[in-house]
Design a protein around this nucleic acid. Structure first.
Length: 105
DNA sequence: CATCTGACGACCG
DNA sequence: GCGGTCGCCAGAT
């Protein structure tokens, strides 16, 4: 199923890192692009160990609305991800699917 | 079966 | 930098 593909990629996001909808969209070559990935995330089945909070908007923007928005923020911070305002240092914490850990600090 | 509704992103003015 | 437009899928009612 289309969305399951997305979940698999999300599950691969290392702790303390984040990726974007667009990134997942391109990696999976899912049709519909980032939007569809967003739809998939909105329907993310809980209880399957899917770190949905590690998925942010392009450039590291936090786009999820309440109540999950604040939850996501909390989760990320507890993983060591610094969040400046409504954004994350994507250059620092960004992660690409299919790639090993790319950056260290 | 028809409609409505969402966690997006790139582009343009 | 900000707001509006457009492209797109699946599940619920």
């Amino acid at each position: 199923m289309t969305w399951d593909i997305v979940y698999r990629v999300v599950k691969r996001i290392p702790r303390g890192r984040v990726t974007t909808y667009g990134e997942i969209a391109r990696f999976t070559r899912i049709k519909g692009g980032a939007r569809v990935v967003g739809y998939a995330m909105a329907a993310t089945p809980r209880g399957r160990g899917i770190p949905w909070h590690r998925v942010v908007g392009a450039g590291g923007k936090l786009i999820i609305r309440e109540p999950y928005g604040s939850l996501q923020r909390k989760m990320l911070e507890s993983e060591g991800v610094e969040i400046g305002g409504a954004r994350i240092s994507y250059k620092k914490y960004g992660w690409k699917p299919g790639r090993r850990m790319a950056r260290k600090t």
